Amino acid sequence: VKKMAKAIMADPNKADEVYKKWADKGYTLTQMSNFLKSKTAGKYDRVYNGYVIHLD
């Protein structure tokens, strides 16, 4: 998940494709939050927020 999150950060155009894969795998927002937690607070906030919007 972190590898794909980094791919989104490097190229935001990949976001919809990645979010669809995550949704197809049934990842919940709680799971995504836990996967994307980082020592650098807020590092993956943009990715998480994008997934929230995708699921909505």
Rank of each mutant, 00 (worst) to 15 (best):
V1F: 08
V1R: 04
K2Y: 02
K2T: 06
K3L: 11
K3Y: 08
K3T: 10
M4N: 06
M4A: 10
A5K: 03
A5Y: 03
A5N: 02
K6R: 15
K6C: 12
K6I: 10
K6S: 09
K6Y: 07
K6E: 13
A7W: 10
A7G: 05
I8L: 07
M9F: 07
A10Q: 11
D11S: 07
D11P: 03
D11N: 12
P12K: 07
P12N: 06
P12S: 08
P12F: 10
N13R: 14
N13P: 05
N13F: 10
N13L: 12
N13E: 12
N13D: 12
K14C: 12
K14R: 12
K14P: 02
K14N: 09
K14F: 09
A15V: 05
A15K: 06
A15F: 04
A15L: 05
A15G: 06
D16I: 12
D16S: 12
D16R: 10
E17P: 04
E17Y: 11
V18S: 03
V18K: 02
V18Q: 04
Y19P: 00
Y19W: 03
Y19F: 08
Y19A: 00
K20F: 06
K20L: 06
K20A: 10
K21F: 15
K21Y: 15
K21S: 14
W22C: 01
W22F: 02
A23C: 11
D24H: 10
D24M: 12
K25A: 15
K25V: 11
G26I: 04
Y27F: 10
Y27H: 03
Y27T: 00
Y27P: 00
T28I: 04
L29S: 08
L29K: 11
L29M: 07
T30D: 14
Q31W: 06
M32R: 00
M32G: 02
M32H: 01
S33H: 12
S33C: 13
N34F: 14
F35H: 05
F35N: 03
F35T: 02
F35W: 15
F35P: 00
L36F: 04
L36D: 02
K37S: 12
K37R: 12
S38W: 06
S38P: 03
S38A: 06
S38T: 09
S38V: 07
K39Y: 09
T40D: 10
A41L: 12
A41W: 10
A41S: 12
A41V: 12
A41N: 11
G42W: 05
G42H: 10
G42I: 04
K43F: 11
K43N: 05
Y44A: 01
Y44S: 01
D45F: 06
D45V: 07
D45W: 10
R46F: 14
R46Q: 15
V47D: 01
V47T: 01
V47Q: 02
Y48V: 07
N49Y: 14
G50P: 00
G50A: 05
G50T: 02
Y51E: 00
Y51I: 03
Y51D: 00
Y51F: 07
V52E: 10
V52R: 15
V52Q: 12
V52S: 10
V52A: 14
V52G: 07
I53R: 14
H54M: 07
H54W: 15
H54C: 05
L55R: 01
L55W: 06
L55M: 08
L55K: 01
D56K: 15
D56R: 15
D56A: 15
D56H: 14
